[in-house]
Design a protein around this nucleic acid. Structure first.
Lengths: 122, 122
DNA sequence: CGGGATCCTTGAAGATACTG
DNA sequence: CAGTATCTTCAAGGATCCCG
């Protein structure tokens, strides 16, 4: 057993754990939008577009559970609920945005590779 | 329609596209291991541990399709297949590693937040 | 308005067996 | 050794209805 490999694997699992949280269908979008400031439920739903209220609820609950957002309920009628990034959420934004930048800059190369691969294989 | 919001959303979709590629169960692990140099199929399977050969094949095919790894077949008996990161794959490693660093450093805060949340809710 | 509860459809993932 | 083929399981995601 080579030294370091144990922690190498463990770290990778931690990465996977965070990535599978962040890498689902909607989390990044939600976090990015909340990066501009607090938003309420319906505002998020409308702005994102294409997300069901169930998935938005689920996503927000997950983010709340992991300490990335806070949920504030205003006991008015009709009710109003604000979501806002915590410090941890803000900090997450940094590496995620970096990956986002990379994605923006290289998405074309990826799509080209895909087309090439699909042509060759099919 | 506020200016910039269209591209904001489009960029987020690109991020999601890359993240859902990178954020699946095994991709990061595979890419990280290949970061140290080319490896053959069985070597990856053994090193990662817990991955089925079907999932390893699927993951590697996906990475190959998107231009992140190359697949080299040696026509020997028994056959030997090497996988190796492309330039694009190497470059991907940078932001992914950054996110990994962040994950390593903050995984405890996340787990703590989870425990707190689960206690409060249950 | 902001959800909860329910049902349903996919696709991801794993187990197993076989093959060039 | 490095896969392919097949079957099964399971959870993510979506649609719909209801409620305080």
């Amino acid at each position: 057993m080579k030294p370091g490999h144990h922690h190498h694997t463990e770290d990778c699992r931690a990465v996977s754990e965070v990535l599978s949280r962040v890498g689902d269908k909607w989390t990044v979008l939600v976090v990015q939008y909340l990066g501009s400031g607090p938003m309420r439920f319906s505002e998020l739903k409308r702005t994102i577009g294409g997300i069901s209220q169930k998935m938005l609820t689920t996503t927000l609950r997950g983010l709340e559970r992991d300490g990335f957002v806070t949920r504030t309920v205003f006991p008015t009628i009709p009710p109003r609920v604000d979501y806002q990034l915590t410090e941890l959420g803000q900090e997450l934004l940094t590496p995620v945005t970096a990956l986002g930048e990379w994605a923006r800059m290289n998405i074309l190369r990826i799509r080209e590779a895909r087309e090439r691969f699909d042509e060759t294989v099919v």
